[in-house]
Simulated scan of single mutants.
Amino acid sequence: MAGMFDLMKQAQAMQAKMQDVQAELERVEVEGQSGGGMVRITLTAKGQMKGITLDPSLLKPEDKDMLEDLIVAAHDDARKKGERVMEERMQSLTAGLPLPPGFKLPF
């Protein structure tokens, strides 16, 4: 029975830490780039867009399609970086807990 009590205490501690990590991920910002830095997008680690910066040379009507592609690529780059930050934080949070392989948090 003591083992179950210890597991419940660990789960409660992890839940409190997870709330802290979730709050931190809302503040952590990552930047994705494309076009050699001509397009930069800033997201929170949770994926909320905070800003976009475009090189003025891209603001030509004939470059519209290319600019759209660069924006999508920069957003994808930032999203992937945010996911890596989130994974790192979650791994440090669950270190030492007996979770099955492939078990992902948050649920």
Rank of each mutant, 00 (worst) to 15 (best):
Q15F: 05
M38G: 15
A95T: 13
M38K: 15
E29R: 11
F5I: 14
P56L: 01
L54N: 07
Q15W: 02
A23S: 14
E68S: 03
F103E: 07
M1V: 11
D6N: 07
Q10D: 14
M1L: 12
K80V: 03
M66D: 04
K80G: 07
Q10W: 03
A13Q: 12
R40K: 15
R89Y: 07
F5T: 12
G51T: 01
M49Y: 02
V30Q: 02
A23P: 06
D63A: 04
G36T: 01
V39L: 05
E24S: 10
Q19H: 02
T44M: 08
L7M: 11
P56V: 10
D55I: 13
T94S: 13
K104Q: 15
K9N: 03
L99D: 08
T53L: 13
L97R: 03
L43T: 02
D65N: 04
V85C: 02
S57K: 13
E24Y: 00
P98A: 15
A13K: 08
A13F: 00
M86Y: 12
T94Y: 01
L105N: 05
P101N: 09
Q10M: 09
L54P: 10
E26T: 14
P100E: 15
T42G: 01
E29H: 06
A13H: 00
E83D: 15
Q12H: 04
K81M: 02
A13S: 13
E31N: 06
I41T: 10
L54Q: 08
A74L: 05
M14T: 02
S92V: 10
G3T: 08
F103Y: 14
I52S: 10
D6A: 01
L54C: 08
R79I: 06
E87R: 12
Q19E: 14
M1G: 14
E31D: 03
P100N: 14
A2L: 10
I52T: 14
M38F: 11
P100W: 12
D65R: 07
D6Q: 00
V85R: 06
A13L: 09
R79Y: 11
A74C: 00
L25F: 06
M49K: 00
L43R: 05
Q15M: 05
P106W: 09
G82C: 09
V21G: 01
E88S: 13
P101H: 11
Q33G: 01
H75N: 08
L7Q: 09
V21W: 01
P98T: 15
P61R: 06
